[in-house]
Design a protein around this nucleic acid. Sequence first.
DNA 1: TCTGGGGTCCTAGGACCC
DNA 2: TCTGGGGTCCTAGGACCC
Length: 456
Amino acid sequence: MRSEPSILHLDLDAFFAAVEQRDKPSLRGRPVVVGGIGPRGVVSTASYEARAFGARSAMPTHEARRRCPPGTAFLGGRFAAYRKTSAVVMSLLREVSSVVEQVSVDEAYVDLAAGEQRDLSADGVRLLGEELLERIEAETGGLTASAGIASSKMLAKIGSDLEKPRGLVVVAPGRELDVLAPLNVRALGGVGPATADRLRTFGVETVEQLRRLALPDLVSIFGEAHGNGLHRLARAQDDRPVVVERETKSISAEETFETDVADRARLESEIARLAEGVPAARRRVGLRPHGDGQGAPPRLQPADPLGHAAARHRPGGRGHRPGHPAAARRRRQLRPAADRRGGVRTHHARPGRAGPGAGRARSRRARPGVRSRRRPRRTSAGRHGHRGHARSGVADRRRRRARRARCRLGVGSGRGRVTVRFEGPLTGPGPVRTFAVDDPQLEPADPPDWRPEPVA
DNA sequence: TCTGGGGTCCTAGGACCC
DNA sequence: TCTGGGGTCCTAGGACCC
């Protein structure tokens, strides 16, 4: 936490919907919903008019249709237009400071303390923020944004959300805990539905109540990293720096089928199709290109025909003993009845390989699993200390059951391979099969002068 | 027919080694 | 030979974010 309010968080208001309303005057003043418009689509952004009827982002589109009146516009989205407008805003931010961390297409942090000396008093940064919001409005054709300015990223982000739309909140140093105390724990970054559910069982709903839980209790409930993170967040302890570039660590491709797919052959061909796009996507983000970038498309081949690995790690199978009769039965029974989603993911695409740009990447990467459970890790609510998981619990088990019932097709990854797992309800005969996608582009070394391409 | 698609990070636990 | 501690490497699973 800094001694001055020198971190600004900017968030564009109902961004996708606002771009649509700007470009199509007939939509102004009307409810607009942007997102997936298919039978299984979800809402990306609802305009404020649509929010008045209860439409929200992440809501299934059919639910938004049910809530909104006739005349509501449901749009699939024009991402090129959104990116173009976003670029205008980001360049305005870079005029304010050279240290701008773009978090997503409509959100960024700005370090006001970087570079030239400026007035970092509460009044000074308020004036700066006011001018910034005006410029954004003028240069984007009327789009509004909200900003929070505070002594940490956490408080800046919370501030930008407090008076949306077109809000500007400066959290004066020393006032952080007062701002935080009455908020619901969900306002804290890293507290999602699972953590909030779990906290509620301990009678904790607000940040103030969270602050009364002792650190050892939080750690025993949520584990080392998440427990420590919650303890710090509740006390407004956050010293994450604003960083200009973020390294891409994994790429994936995923699609939800319009209708559930129960046919194994069809499933395999869909996965193969998705997998073919992965090397190209990887090149696009500058992750692990090699040679001239040409290579054979990935192939699917059976890797573990009996599905032992998949069975061992099935949800609910933790602590499962391989010799147990129930385990053998479960192995025989594993077969998805239907899948609604397919996907392929690669990540940590070049573990342990040297190459220009790779040194920094490797040193920053927390290698999965390389971690002693006895030695307390230095955790912080900073870069990644406040994420984690909630163990077991009724809600947790309920969710796991729901996941199985949805027949999700899960996808994992490994060194130099993409593995595809099938998950489904434990019904019917037939083994689960794990497939490896051979990707020749993962192996060869980079040319010595290779540099990652900037992420678009 | 409730719940997309792109990511990040953390943790449990098995295999293996000393 | 047995037992166990401690560490590393890796996979799978889960929570969370926009």
